[in-house]
Design a protein around this nucleic acid. Structure first.
Lengths: 206, 206, 206, 206
DNA sequence: AATGAATGAGGGTTCATTCAT
DNA sequence: AATGAATGAACCCTCATTCAT
């Protein structure tokens, strides 16, 4: 009995946490950290305010839990995507695709990641980059491999190139959402990869 | 006499406004809109809080004035830069350069532009895009011209391509500042243009 | 069977009540009424919070039950102590001794009695003095008897003198505990009685 | 002009602080720290809540300021009283008188001093005893002098004797107020000194 | 015109109490 | 009978805005 009880307890806890995190992500995304009221999150979750505080120490902690969950999930998807392919360039394409799909699904997160980063600066960056680099390192390896194979220009600094890719993607999806998805995401996806891989110029060298 | 007085008055007003805007840009940039206190702006400007309210209706208005001033100034620089060159591709390069230089100088603004955009959403977007498009339209013309001349891939949607360029630049400078300028801006500049113009792939067609 | 069951039930109830009261006295003593959380009492008693509420209507009621139990117990001890002696002055000494011993053992209570008295003012005073006077009256009788016998100065108002004695003792033990028992209780005890009986002055009349 | 302005400013500040402290002392005294609402203090002071926070960092700080002001004032009165007399025993009597008069006037403070001491324990004790000992040391000197002159029993530990005196007085006035001043303060005063100086016993040694 | 003291709506957080299991 | 998850009233504190001087 006790085992079942404990299990039930834990399950409830996780369910409630998810319930709150889901709502909170939506609200934080819409209003940003400062303008979000814990009251609204509680209401939308169909819970009392006190219940939110039962599961999350305070507003900041709730916010960071969203960031954490998102980063964790994103990292997993990206690594998983890479694992599916053999060729370095294909791996990179898959990662890009995974990125776009992830944010297409969890469009809440892009705003949270971008417009609230500086809100928490020092304290949060650590947490952020801890996840981020774990993931980026893998991509860097792929990038280097592609350079070794002569697929990518040798003179390009891979760390920078990845930063640029990340930024392009982040900012792209961000704008995409902000402007109300005026242009389709998949059309844009091919454009992004095209630009990233071969640039905007007509091949002259033929 | 009255004319001189009026002129003097107006000059003083403009001076005060500039004084406040400069300080406010710094503070908003460091803390974001919500965490910035009007008190701090007044203090740093060496003025009374009431004086700030004499020159700006409220906090939001002050914030938007910064955005306005920044966009105006950026637009001017970009158009001016384009005007100096004849060739379409050179025009685009100059615009990119102008962008980077502008934000290198006014690094306050990149944060304000990026992480506070959604804070004001609907109401602000109008103002933002009003400036933005006026500027973008000119660039689009250049882009189209380059395509007509066979310099840029025909299949690329110019509106999207410019959006991507803008995002790359914005987000690039943003990250650049956020991470404490670990890599040099000019080095990155050439990388960005390189990637934007020719991609990351080795030219195979030779 | 039913009788035994009932008895068992009652016993359990009393046991639980004692268990809770003991813990609660400790916590209320350490933190005062307002800063004490029912949660902490339940935890320390190894019970669920709901169980505490099964045995005590609310927090205030729990607190007052402690006061009641303490006063009852103190009164018994004092009266018992007096009963053991014949001589009035000896009775008074015994009472003093009983007081000190009681609070030495139940040091929790002195804080509760003193620093929370006013917390409940009107409503509580009644209960307090109901116990108190029942007890004080007996001592007053002794005091008057000693005066009749010429042992105690005639001009002294006995009610006042007892109030002063009580205060001296209360406040003494309170300070004694508050300061971390820097000086020994028994040393101080003889000093108190000495002062109370013969004052601080050197006997001049010799 | 500026000098006058500054002076005026300072005057206003002090006036407001006094205004708030006076009200706050009353309310804290009536309800204790925890049950006192800052709102009520503000209301009774005829001020907005924000104004209270303009002059005192937070509720705790306000409370401690009351304690400070009281201790300072009490210390001054006591030292002043002692200074007026030559003979050690007279000095002690004057101190007792000063004590009683002080609390007769500032009856708010006795409750605050007594029933909230433990609320703040560690942090506050320092502040309390800092004032307290400065004052007690002087009294101790007088006490020792009286012993040297053979006026006070040699075997009495002066530190303890003073602690007892203080307690008697504190607790006496406390009870006096709590019970609604049923007996007169001055009558009690002479009884206290009588008891403290010569005890309750009839002089047998004649 | 400039100031900064005063304000109070607003929102984060706590915790006594309830009640379904 | 025992539990502890859920609740929301209560209360501290902040800060944009106003306005008398």
């Amino acid at each position: 009995m006790k085992i079942t009880d404990k299990a039930k307890r834990k399950e409830l806890t996780q369910m409630r946490q998810k319930q709150i995190l889901d709502v909170a992500a939506r609200v934080f995304s819409k209003k940003g950290f400062a303008r979000t009221q814990v009251d609204e999150i509680a209401d939308l979750a169909g819970l009392g305010k006190g219940t939110v505080y039962r599961y999350f120490k305070d507003k900041k902690n709730l916010f960071l839990s969203i960031v954490d969950r998102g980063l964790e999930s994103l990292k997993d998807l990206a690594l998983e995507a890479m694992a599916k392919e053999k060729e370095p360039l294909d791996k990179i394409k898959k990662v890009i695709e995974a990125y776009l799909k992830f944010f297409e699904k969890h469009s809440d997160l892009i705003r949270i990641f971008i417009h609230e980063q500086s809100e928490f600066q020092k304290r949060i960056q650590k947490r952020y980059y801890q996840h981020y680099y774990e993931h980026v390192n893998k991509v860097e390896d792929v990038f280097r491999e592609a350079q070794t194979l002569g697929l990518i220009k040798k003179k390009i600094n891979h760390r920078l190139a990845i930063a640029i890719l990340t930024d392009m993607l982040n900012s792209f999806i961000y704008t995409w959402q902000l402007t109300g998805q005026k242009y389709s995401l998949s059309e844009s996806f091919s454009l992004i990869t095209e630009i990233y891989f071969t640039g905007i110029l007509e091949q002259r060298g033929k």
